[in-house]
Write a protein that binds this DNA or RNA. Structure first.
Length: 459
RNA sequence: GGCAGGGUGGCUCAGUGGUACGGCGGAGGACUGCAAAUCCUUUAUUCGCGAGUUCGAUUCUCGCCCCUGCCUCCA
């Protein structure tokens, strides 16, 4: 079976066929760097990281581009509030972004372009639109895109221009020819950052940067464009309008959109204030737990965020780590030779990246491994599958001992008590042995006796 | 109002025209000095409601109810 993708623009799953055999150009909308990332951003990072890994595993040479929007109203405002330079703010937030993404186990994209480094490309794209009469300068001096001139407008989001209730929620700018027209180039006020352009000092609109940077890195027509569901309209719709009108290319062929992270069935968002930053969560849970949590639901479905849900993800991950630990202790590496993935795992991932089903296969393999280990069978092949699947999903990547024993505990003291308990047990002083177990238990340390000795873990 | 996506066991999450995957939790058993872990068994006559198509529908069609999102910045 070949790779099937749900293409938003077609509203159905279809077989993936790359433009150039063996190669994939993929652009994913990144973030506006004015604040720390929240769990919703984490979902985009993780979802597309798994997609990136799977595409590479499938034999493609993937050019993965993810941008940073580093010029924007919110950035200007935040920098002013904090009394720091814009560069200082954006650099700080880009560093924080990388720290978060790295912690979540996400591979770096092949390119991470910054909007401010691509002004020429944006300006020439706007120029092309002006020449084709697809853009105009409004009374305020801003350059606007003329939506009515693009017949395919609304194709991605399934919206019809005349059915959109423009102005129902926001006052319509009277200088626009059509309420849906959007800014390509914004005139700068006195103390705002500005770049020279044929239309005066100003800065680019939000949408144009993605059109310019994606086409700039991947060409006028490329394979995959992704992002959060909320970017479908108007952002992605506008990107299509700009890029196709400016350069005549087809722009992205496959559109992938991930679902939201919700809290109490409501979208997590800055405006509602119901968000948690990635760093807030990873202070309480290992980043891999967050990753496990994300993988448990299909990427297009909504995902309800809660501590209870993270606890469940952690329990499941612990189970996998136990298997990994047992393999290690038994000297089964699973490495060596080409590890074959279970067929079911491959079909699940090929079917629009069905990670919940892929996880089910991983758990099945985990059980088979445990059983094989119990019965002293040769589990090398199973261990190889287990390792390969884990690596593709980016989980069970930590040292197993550290996974179970991390935290502020005095390992030496625990080991000493374990030794004392061992002696007590040898002397059949079970009262003392149990007292030690209880004492450690009170500290959240669980002892596990086995044929090969006693191990401990943090509960 | 328009458009999009949902409603599956205690919770969660897949899936299929022939009575439903996995995880968490629960129950029983093996094992253990006791535990823990692990393994085994078990935990939805049923997939929002009603009708239709069909030999047969949770899966297809129609209608209805409910939920969420987008239509403004938003991953």
């Amino acid at each position: 079976m070949s790779l099937m993708l749900y293409n938003t623009i077609k509203r159905e799953k279809e077989a993936f066929v790359p433009i150039r055999p063996g190669h994939i150009g993929m652009y994913v909308c990144g973030v506006t760097v004015y604040d720390y990332c929240h769990v919703g951003h984490a979902r985009v990072m993780i979802v597309f990281d798994v997609i990136y890994r799977w595409l590479m595993h499938s034999g493609f040479d993937v050019d993965y581009v993810r941008n940073f929007t580093d010029v924007d109203d919110k950035i200007i405002k935040r920098a002013a509030e904090r009394g720091i330079a814009i560069d200082a703010l954006t650099n700080e937030m880009i560093d924080a972004f990388h720290a978060d993404a790295d912690a979540l186990g996400c591979l770096r994209p092949t390119h991470e372009p910054r909007a401010t480094a691509h002004m020429d490309a944006m300006i020439s794209m706007i120029q092309a639109l002006m020449e084709k009469d697809m853009a105009y300068v409004s009374e305020s001096g801003d350059v606007l895109y003329a939506v009515r001139g693009f017949s395919d407008y609304g194709q991605l989001s399934g919206k019809k221009i005349d059915e959109l209730e423009s102005g129902s929620r926001v006052d319509v700018d009277q200088s626009k020819r059509d309420p849906l027209d959007f800014v390509l180039w914004k005139m700068a006020k006195a103390d705002e950052p500005a770049w020279a352009s044929p239309w005066g000092q100003g800065r680019p609109g939000w949408h144009i940067e993605c059109s310019a940077m994606s086409c700039g890195h991947l060409g006028d027509t490329f394979d995959i464009h992704g992002g959060g569901m909320d970017l479908k309209f108007p952002h992605h719709e506008n990107e299509i309008a700009q890029a196709r009108a400016a350069n005549g290319g087809g722009f992205a062929r496959y559109w992938l959109h991930n679902g939201f992270v919700n809290i109490n069935a409501e979208k997590m968002s800055k405006s509602l204030g119901n968000f948690f930053t990635i760093r807030e969560v990873t202070e309480r849970y290992h980043p891999e737990v967050l990753r496990m949590f994300m993988l448990g639901t299909h990427y297009r479905s909504p995902l309800d965020f809660s501590d209870a849900a993270l606890d469940v993800a952690k329990s499941g991950l612990d189970r996998l780590y136990k298997t990994a630990k047992r393999c290690q202790e038994s000297g089964v590496t699973g490495a060596g030779g080409q590890a074959l993935l279970p067929h079911h795992f491959t079909t699940a991932m090929d079917d629009d990246f069905n990670t919940p089903e892929a996880l089910a296969v991983l758990f099945d393999t985990s059980r088979a491994l445990n059983k094989g280990l119990n019965e002293a069978q040769d589990v090398t092949a199973l261990a190889g599958q287990f390792t390969a699947m884990s690596a593709l999903l980016g989980i069970v990547q930590q040292d197993t001992a550290i996974w179970f024993q991390s935290g502020d505990v005095d390992a030496a003291a625990i080991e000493a008590l374990i030794e004392e308990r061992l002696q007590a047990r040898k002397n059949r002083d079970f009262a003392r042995a149990d007292a030690i177990r209880n004492e450690l238990s009170a500290q959240g340390i669980v002892l596990e006796d086995s044929a090969s000795g006693t191990t401990w873990k943090k509960n």
